[in-house]
C-alpha cells in the first residue's frame, strides 16, 4: 500500500470540503473494497477521508412511503433491521447474503453503490425498486446513477448520503453465488411496484447491472412465473469468463427470474 494521509471528518460537509481541497482524495466507508484495492496498489489515493464516524449517516428509517437507508449502514445492519424486515424483506435478505459475516460487519450500502462492481448485489435492488440515490449535491434516479462497469454518475467531490427505496407490493432477490468469491455469478431482483414490474440483473452484464425488459413486459400482464414460459434472455452483451459462459448466464437469468417471481408471490 502506498502512503496516504488519513482524515476523520465529523460531518458530510467537512468530508466534502476535504475532497475539494485535496486532489485525488478518496472517501472510505467499510474499506472492504478500497483496502484490498489499495493493497494491490491498483489505487493510491494520497488522502483517505473516513466516513465511518459521521454520526447519523448510517440511519435506517421510514419516511412516508419510502424506506430510507443511510450510506454508511452496514450490510449486517440492513440484514437485521426490523424496519427493513418489515418494509422490504427482500432487501434485508439480499444484505444478509453479501459475502460472509465479517464482510457484512464492515461493508456499507454507499460503498457498494459507489463501487458499482458488476457482480455486486445492491445495484440490482436499487435498480429494480426504482430507488433514488441522494448525495451531498443532488438526487439521482437509479437508471442515471449506474453507468457501466465500476462507473457511476458520481462526481469526484460527491458523497452518497442515503438511498430512498419506494415500497414495492412484492419483491424478491435470488442470487446464484460464485462459490469462490461469494459475489453473484448472476443475481435477479424482481419488484412488483404499484405502477410497473421491474427485473434487474446483476453479475451477468458486461456493462454492469441492467433491466431484463422481456421478462418485465411478460410480468406486467400477470405477475406469475407461469407467464414466463417461452421468455428467455439473450446471451448478447453478457459476460463470458472462467466461471461461466454468456449462454450459461443467459440461462441462469431465466431460471432465477422464475424463482424470484415464485418467491415474491409466496410472500
Amino acid at each position: 500500500m502506498y502512503e496516504f494521509k488519513y482524515h476523520r471528518p465529523a460531518t458530510v460537509r467537512q468530508a466534502a470540503n476535504l475532497l475539494v481541497k485535496n486532489e485525488d482524495a478518496k472517501v472510505i466507508a467499510g474499506g472492504h473494497t478500497l483496502v484490498p484495492v489499495m493493497k494491490q496498489r491498483l489505487a493510491s489515493p494520497p488522502h483517505l477521508i473516513d466516513l465511518s464516524h459521521i454520526e447519523g449517516l448510517d440511519a435506517i428509517e421510514m419516511k412516508g412511503r419510502s424506506l430510507v437507508i443511510g450510506a454508511t449502514a452496514k450490510h449486517a445492519d440492513v440484514a437485521t433491521s426490523p424496519i427493513v424486515g418489515e418494509a422490504i424483506p427482500a432487501l434485508a435478505e439480499l444484505a444478509g447474503g453479501i459475502g460472509d459475516p465479517a464482510v457484512r460487519h464492515k461493508g456499507t450500502l454507499g460503498g457498494s453503490l459507489a463501487n458499482n462492481d458488476p457482480t455486486a448485489d445492491y445495484p440490482a435492488a436499487v435498480l429494480a425498486l426504482g430507488a433514488t440515490i441522494v448525495t451531498n449535491k443532488r438526487r439521482l434516479k437509479a437508471e442515471e446513477f449506474f453507468q457501466g462497469l465500476f462507473t457511476t454518475a458520481l462526481e469526484n467531490d460527491e458523497i452518497i448520503t442515503k438511498v430512498m427505496f419506494p415500497l414495492p407490493k412484492k419483491a424478491a432477490y435470488i442470487k446464484f453465488r460464485n462459490q469462490a468469491s461469494r459475489y453473484a455469478l448472476v443475481g435477479v431482483f424482481v419488484a412488483k411496484r404499484p405502477s410497473d414490474v421491474r427485473v434487474a440483473v446483476t453479475g451477468a452484464g458486461s456493462d454492469g447491472v441492467f433491466r431484463a425488459t422481456a421478462f418485465e413486459e411478460a410480468l406486467k400482464k400477470r405477475f406469475s412465473h407461469k407467464v414466463l414460459d417461452g421468455v428467455s434472455a439473450s446471451a448478447e452483451g453478457l459476460n463470458s469468463d472462467l466461471h461461466g459462459s454468456a449462454e450459461y448466464r443467459a440461462h441462469l437469468i431465466g431460471v432465477l427470474t422464475r424463482r424470484a417471481v415464485e418467491a415474491a408471490t409466496a410472500k
Binding site: R8, I28, G31, H32, V35, D50, A102, V103, K106
Partner: peptide, 29 residues
C-alpha cells in the same frame, strides 16, 4: 491477506471483522 480466509478475524466493538482488511487508524477510539 486478501480478505478471504478469516485467519485474521478479531472483534471490533464486539463484532467479528477481518483485521487484514481494516486499517488500524479506523479502529482509533
Amino acid at each position: 491477506d486478501t480478505s478471504q480466509c478469516g485467519a485474521c478475524v478479531v472483534h471490533l466493538d464486539g463484532k467479528a471483522v477481518k483485521s487484514c482488511t481494516t486499517l488500524a487508524v479506523m479502529a482509533d477510539g
